[in-house]
């Protein structure tokens, strides 16, 4: 699926859709950035509560096309700006990381 399909998932609010055509073939759930950067696979969406600019750096370095920020946390402006500059899309949701992960797994037919 693509980033555009993430935007259609129930309960996901699009904060910024940078490049909706980017491929999403997997996901990674985590809040420890050095764990994420070491273990994330290709074309993965990041499911996290880390709503700040450093998360964008990690996504950009690991070529992740999108982030889902969980538990109703909201992204600061500098994070959204950095996401835009790096072709990364951001979604916010009130879901827990578990629930968001399940929804994405279903969308990926996993």
């Amino acid at each position: 699926m693509t980033v555009n399909d993430l935007a259609k998932i129930d309960g996901f609010n699009t904060i910024i859709l940078s490049d909706g055509s980017l491929e999403v073939s997997s996901a990674y759930t985590g809040d420890l950035l050095s764990d994420v950067i070491a273990n994330v696979g290709d074309d993965s969406v990041l499911i996290t509560v880390q709503a700040h600019k450093n998360t964008i750096a990690v996504c950009s370095l690991s070529s992740m096309p999108a982030i889902v920020i969980c538990n109703g946390r909201s992204c600061p402006d500098d994070m959204i700006k950095a996401a835009k500059e790096n072709d990364i899309s951001i979604f916010e949701t009130d879901d827990t990381q578990f629930l968001a992960s399940v929804k994405i797994a279903k969308a990926l037919n996993l």
């Binding site: 950067i37 070491a38 600019k53 450093n54 964008i56 750096a57 990690v58 950009s60 370095l61 690991s62 070529s63 500098d78």
Partner: peptide, 29 residues
């Protein structure tokens, strides 16, 4: 605020040089 800038530059430089993706990933990490 600016953390990650240097690594991003290094990644870009390697990408420009046509280095294989998996190797760029290791350098980025």
């Amino acid at each position: 605020e600016n953390a990650g800038y240097a690594s991003t530059q290094i990644k870009k430089k390697l990408k420009k040089g046509g280095v294989a993706t998996q190797i760029i990933r290791r350098a980025a990490i």
